Amino acid sequence: MTVSNWTIDPTHSSIEFSVKHMMIAKVKGSFNKFSANISADPLDLTTAEIDFDVDVASIDTRNADRDNHLRSADFFHVEHNPTLTFKSSKIVKTDEDEYDVTGNVTLNGITKEETFAITFEGQGKDPWGNEKAGFSGKGKIKRSDYGLTYNAALETGGVLIGDQITLTLDIEAAKEA
């Protein structure tokens, strides 16, 4: 294969997250609006270039009050920082169809280098002849690294919201003509 441009199919893709709540459970949610510019040979992702944009206001935890609080200045302050971005800088093959993708994450006006474990799930043509490729990934970031420090102490000890966020990606991309 050769390097080509790929576009995310948002109807067959997702970005989900989870965070500890009250130190005993996990709250899960998703970002419903995102896009990416991907230049890649799916059979050799080490040469790929990935620019990912997430509309932070599209956060969805299935609770409108919580979602509005997350959009506020206590957390994402979406009026001033509407987008989470990722730009790849290094991709290392770690196993068959497995890669560590490192790049700069910018969130809440702060940029840090992060690494995500990505799996190439396969490639094929849909019923209309369009070339598709699938990827899944997982990574963890600390929200405090991005100035997201809102919290509340619990009377039993500990805090209301954990610092570590687990991100899970499932992406179906279409090869551009």
Rank of each mutant, 00 (worst) to 15 (best):
T61L: 04
A133Y: 01
D67W: 01
A48Q: 05
G29W: 00
F120A: 10
F116W: 01
A36H: 03
G124I: 01
D60N: 13
D67G: 07
V56R: 01
T47G: 15
N130F: 11
I118R: 02
Y99H: 02
E131S: 15
N68V: 09
A64C: 11
D65M: 12
R71I: 01
N81D: 14
N37K: 13
N68P: 13
K93Y: 02
P42W: 04
N37V: 11
T85Q: 00
D97N: 15
G129Q: 06
K87T: 13
E113M: 11
T47W: 08
D126V: 09
Q123M: 15
N81S: 15
G29L: 06
T102H: 03
F75Q: 03
L107I: 03
Q123G: 14
S39D: 12
P127S: 04
F31H: 08
V92F: 04
P82W: 00
F76K: 05
A73S: 15
A40N: 06
T102G: 07
A133M: 03
G129Y: 00
V78L: 06
R71A: 03
G122M: 00
K90E: 11
G124E: 01
N68L: 11
F135V: 09
T61C: 07
T102V: 03
L84T: 10
N63L: 12
S72A: 09
N108P: 12
S39T: 07
A40V: 09
P127F: 04
T47D: 12
D53P: 13
D67L: 03
L43A: 15
S72H: 05
A40H: 08
N37P: 07
K33S: 10
P127V: 05
L43P: 10
A48R: 03
D65A: 14
D126Y: 04
T119G: 11
A117N: 13
T115C: 02
I59H: 01
N108Y: 10
N108A: 14
D95M: 09
D53T: 13
E113H: 10
G129N: 07
E49W: 11
T61H: 09
G124N: 05
T85Y: 05
T106V: 05
P82S: 05
E49I: 14
H77S: 15
R71Y: 02
N63P: 11
S39R: 14
A57T: 08
D60I: 00
N32H: 06
E114T: 12
E96D: 15
F34A: 05
D41T: 04
H77L: 15
F116T: 02
Q123E: 12
F135T: 08
K87M: 05
I118T: 11
S136I: 01
D67E: 04
D41H: 11
T94G: 10
T83E: 07
F75N: 03
E98L: 15
H80Y: 14
K132G: 03
I38W: 09
N63K: 12
I91C: 12
N81E: 12
L45W: 00
T83Q: 10
I118G: 07
